[in-house]
Amino acid sequence: MSRTVLQVQGVTKRFGGLVAVRDMSFDVTEHQVMGIIGPNGSGKSTMINMISGLFAPSEGSIRLNGADLAGLPAHKTARLGVGRTFQLVRLLPELSVVENVVAGAVFGHRRTWGRTAELHARQLLDRVGLGGAIGLPVSSLTYIDTKRVELARALAGDPAVLLLDEWLAGLNPTELATGIDLVRSLRDEGRTIILVEHVMDAIRSLCDRCVVMSSGAKIAQGTPAEVLSDPGVIRAYLGEDEDA
């Protein structure tokens, strides 16, 4: 039986009077890919942002290897081992590609500096398949390459849990296949990943387990095959039937 890395318990997030996330609980096991899925506006991104420390939960606890992350600022969660990518890619435009990745290796969970950090960054860029584009300025990278650089930056701190916020969104079919292979290879090397995703193919082929959210609450949990055949989940995606 594998160890639990991340434990989310009773997490609620209110913005003024609006409840964005309601009483969420789930566990993430080591070396697994956990998917968080659900229709638009169901609170997935808010959930991710609470884990990474962008928002503080109104209630509940988020434990990473025993340490409570709830309410910690992002730089502390990063040091405790949370790495992430952003829904809209955020690269550092005035830095080189390599420096963008080094940024992830210097201040975070595992830290290196100087030549070691640069070497590490180059290896990771190779690992995510950036290859020849390594010397280009950030502004002239293709879309998928910007996503690669961001992924390498998140990996550079060797995070205990990696949050991919719609990392596969917006890719064309060929790129998508490449992207799925890349994430799968990360899982195969034993990474623990939380995947917020819309792309069904990716969910089916990548996730070991899924949590389905609707209107801020968890409505189902299980393997992708189980949750995707759950009538409640289908209703949430397709809307209420007249006779429901």
């Binding site: 600022p73 955020r90 435009p93 830095l95 940024a103 201040f107 930056r153």
Partner: peptide, 11 residues
């Protein structure tokens, strides 16, 4: 360059 990124890489 980007303060949000800076925080998320642990600064």
């Amino acid at each position: 360059n980007d303060e949000t990124v800076a925080r998320h890489v642990g600064i």
